[in-house]
């Protein structure tokens, strides 16, 4: 399929790397994932999922998975503005309060939610 998952969530990596090209960045922060996606958008990759997926706040969950197109085309201004606003939002939340040092159990809950947010659409995507 013509897409790449960019994620720092091992559950997403484990679940999908055989089916979808997956760029797994285990040691990236939430914000670093967003910034990497921004660089990809600059190069003309299309954003396929919203970077602020989920209502879990950016200073709560450390995990983020975003799907972009494999193909590069002319950069989309709409995508750029979404990723820029998302980065600004994420920074705002971190400015209020940094992500706590969660227990492994809670981290795993966050992984499951992050996984759930992308798996619902991934199977029926044809573009």
């Amino acid at each position: 399929m013509d897409k790449i998952i960019i994620t720092n969530n091992k559950l997403v990596h484990q679940g999908y790397y055989e089916k979808v090209e997956t760029l797994f960045l285990g040691d990236f922060t939430y914000l670093q994932v967003l910034e990497l996606v921004r660089d990809k958008i600059h190069k003309g990759h299309k954003l396929l999922t919203h970077p602020l997926s989920g209502s879990v706040k950016p200073n709560e969950t450390p995990f983020k998975s975003i799907i972009i197109s494999k193909k590069q085309n002319v950069m989309s201004f709409a995508d750029l503005s979404i990723i820029e606003e998302s980065i600004a939002s994420a920074k705002r939340f971190m400015g209020n309060q940094v992500t706590p040092a969660w227990s492994e159990k809670i981290l795993n809950d966050f992984r499951i939610i992050d996984l759930s947010l992308i798996e619902n659409g991934i199977c029926n995507m044809y573009f």
Partner: peptide
């Protein structure tokens, strides 16, 4: 309110 931009 879906996650995928195409859905949006």
């Amino acid at each position: 309110e879906n996650v995928f931009l195409a859905d949006k």
